[in-house]
Write a protein that binds this DNA or RNA. Structure first.
Lengths: 153, 153
DNA sequence: GACGATTGTGTTGTGTGCAACTTAGTTGCG
DNA sequence: CGCAACTAAGTTGCACACAACACAATCGTC
């Protein structure tokens, strides 16, 4: 614990800081998207599509709902995205037998095989950030706390 | 400088960390957007529109180009956004006299007046993040470094 | 078993974000 | 001057992201 921020931080600075953080977050998110776009171009995936594939590669076939929970995306975003992945021949939809409302997403053989080609992507991204492992952990921690706090608000 | 991260950090952990950071950034960015949406609903602004208004409130009339530089947005995003702000009666477009290619964006009276109603927004956002001022500074610093590094890549 | 509430998915409409292209105006160089 | 290169803004097309709504299947309660 440091001192309780001795000079009580004037309003003006607080407001500027808020703007700067929001700007930074917005800009950083888009900068990541941009670099991922390059890294994923050869695979024919967009960044959100890659995130969905990661979930499927790691945890196997699962309903739309659980994919959405992990990525914080709703059906309005996932339905058309999954349709594009299906058109690309990477996933397959299957109505669940137990619950006819549920649609289970499976990887096709092509989807499984794409994993190999995607393996070098994370290391490339990691290098592109220019941060140390410790800094990445700090960043992840702060972002996680912000997201939780904002979700509660 | 800390030690050079003595146990050389296994590949698997690095990859997971990269995913977690990207997930976190993506999620945090959208969580911010969601809370801003609520905070700005009464003003009739979206978050990116609010960012543009902030630039105009702080730095006065200026061409589309400089707005884009500050927000890292190109004309493909700004042109329709500014058109919507114009339709809402908040800004005015004016062809520059010296350089006919350039369009200067001015605030209308309504646009100026909206500033008063927007004043409480940053404090509300700041509180919603649940972070201390020091943590916000750390976050801003890390995000800035990541963005610079990614832009170079 | 009947029926209202809930749940999982999909659709529609609006607003970014960005690549690629177009148009009009400006600049530089022979 | 004349013309190519460049620049600022706008347009088009595609892919998120999300609110609001639609629909069918399921569940809970009686």
């Amino acid at each position: 614990m440091t001192r309780p921020t001795s000079p009580p931080v004037p309003d003006a600075e607080l407001l500027r800081l808020d703007h700067q953080v929001c700007f930074s977050l917005h800009a950083a998110s888009r900068a990541f998207g941009s670099v991922y776009r390059d890294a994923l171009k050869d695979l024919g995936l967009t960044y959100p599509q890659y995130l969905v594939m990661l979930v499927l590669w790691e945890h196997g076939p699962q309903p739309v709902k659980t994919i959405g929970e992990q990525l914080r995306l709703d059906s309005g975003t996932l339905s058309p995205l999954l349709k594009r992945l299906e058109t690309a021949g990477l996933v397959r939809r299957e109505r669940s037998a137990e619950d006819e409302r549920s649609v289970t997403i499976h990887l096709t053989d092509a989807g499984e095989e794409l994993r190999e080609r995607a393996l070098p992507v994370p290391r490339r991204m990691l290098a592109a950030t220019g941060l140390t492992v410790d800094e990445l952990r700090t960043l992840r921690g702060l972002l996680g706390r912000v997201t939780s706090a904002l979700d509660d608000a």
